[in-house]
């Protein structure tokens, strides 16, 4: 039996309990995400410490301009997401729709730029595995760097795609007149997820793009 959206589920006493449970559940989910990406960051850090030269060189193959623009794009999407939460709380339907749409647009731009970068790396023969045709010193470790580049940014991009799908669902729900006022919770939870994905990128950007710039 599908309950009307945002209504009180039978296991809860009141909406406050339901909302608090949802927020706590989301934070616990984000903790699992921290640890999931954390395993990757730990592996990255170990190899960076054992092969500093390769990491330095690998980093120089990345495009700081594109990475920097993407960082700004993602931060902008976080702003519009935060504004969307505010609009939902204040029952401003048009503002909610506009900010959700902007967030989706920024997210799509980010993925588009990421795709261009991936394509450049493919052309340069820097995609690990059988496409790795790049010629230079210490290829094994350079390949290891790019392995981590692709796994980490790929995992991040995957999370963005999931986020975009959820945002699209929120747009449809808004058009049906939900998510406003007391029913803003799904927007807030999506916002938590979206900001978390932003935080991951905030670390990925310097660790991948910037570590080899000096010297």
């Amino acid at each position: 039996m599908p309950e009307p959206h945002g209504a009180l589920a039978q296991q809860f006493e009141d909406l406050e309990q339901q909302h608090e449970s949802a927020t706590l559940g989301m934070w616990l989910f984000l903790i699992t995400e921290i640890m999931f990406f954390g395993g990757l960051f730990a592996a990255y850090a170990v190899y960076r410490s054992t092969h500093p030269e390769a990491w330095h060189n690998g980093s120089r193959h990345l495009d700081v301009v594109m990475g920097g623009i993407n960082t700004a794009v993602l931060i902008s999407s976080s702003l519009t997401m935060a504004l969307a939460v505010r609009a939902a709380q204040l029952s401003k339907k048009t503002a909610l729709l506009a900010n959700l749409a902007l967030t989706i647009a920024f997210g799509a731009v980010f993925l588009g730029i990421k795709a261009i970068e991936y394509h450049h790396k493919l052309e340069a023969g820097l995609v690990p595995g059988r496409f790795f045709t790049y010629v230079g010193p210490d290829l094994d470790h350079l390949q290891l760097f790019f392995l981590f580049y692709f796994i980490m940014t790929g995992m991040h991009a995957f999370h963005m795609v999931v986020g975009l799908v959820v945002l699209a669902v929120l747009v449809v729900m808004t058009l049906k007149g939900r998510l406003l006022g007391d029913f803003y919770k799904p927007v807030e939870l999506t916002g938590l997820y979206w900001h978390f994905v932003d935080v991951v990128w905030i670390f990925l950007f310097p660790l991948l793009y910037l570590i080899g710039r000096h010297g």
Partner: peptide, 16 residues
């Protein structure tokens, strides 16, 4: 929320 948000980062630090 503070406790759990903090725990996530603390555990990552333990791993590292």
């Amino acid at each position: 929320t503070w406790v759990f948000a903090g725990a996530g980062f603390l555990w990552l630090v333990l791993l590292l």
